[in-house]
Structure formats: C-alpha cells, structure tokens
C-alpha cells in the first residue's frame, strides 16, 4: 500500500486533529499529547459525521454530533452511541512530514 504525504507535523496542534481527504476517502489525523501521530477513518462509524470538528482528550476522539468516543490509537469504540470501531491507518513521520499508508 502506498505511503501518502498527508501534512506537516506543524499542521496539527498537540492533542488535536485535522481532516485530510485523499481520493474519495476522508481521514482524521491526530497529534497525541506524547507527540505521536495517528490516522483513522475521517467519519464517525455511528452516523457519518466528520470527526475533525470533535474534541481530542488524551487518546480519545469525541464525535461532535453525539459525543461518542473512540481511542484513536486503536480505533476502538469507547462510549455510546458508537458501537463499531474506527478503521485505523499506519502513520510514519519523516523530515517533519506525516505520511499515511492508505489502504
């Protein structure tokens, strides 16, 4: 699977996320409090709301519509009303750029 240059590490504040669209897909890219980067599907698995407007708290992303929560490191659904895990994508950082391995 190809690694795609998604953004600069400076584009995302710590403990925050951005939306990144590639082809027909939309992703969410996260900057954890420890300085690591992660990527998940960009839409909530509950009702297709963009997660980019949500709130990152530690390692959780909260959906802006219904307050469902996922662990963005694993995609695990952590709080109702979300029940279905988020798809996660491998991420690597090289020379200040964030690359996502797009499936």
């Amino acid at each position: 699977m190809p690694w795609i240059d998604a953004c600069s590490t400076d584009d995302i504040d710590e403990e925050d996320l951005i939306r990144w669209d590639h082809g027909a897909q939309t992703f969410a890219i996260y900057h954890s409090p420890e300085g690591e980067f992660f990527a998940t599907a960009g839409l909530c698995s509950h009702e297709n709301v963009h997660l980019c407007d949500g709130l990152v708290m530690g390692h959780l992303i909260e959906c802006p519509k219904h307050n469902g929560q996922f662990d963005y490191r694993t995609g695990e659904a952590m709080r109702a009303p979300v029940c279905v895990n988020l798809k996660v994508f491998p991420v690597k950082v090289e020379a200040g750029r964030v690359f996502v391995e797009v499936a």
Partner: peptide, 10 residues
C-alpha cells in the same frame, strides 16, 4: 433514552 436522544440530535 441514551439512544433516543442521539436520534433527537441527528
């Protein structure tokens, strides 16, 4: 009601 309220918001 947790679920009905989710629908109310959607």
């Amino acid at each position: 009601w947790r679920w009905s309220h989710a629908r109310h918001h959607s």
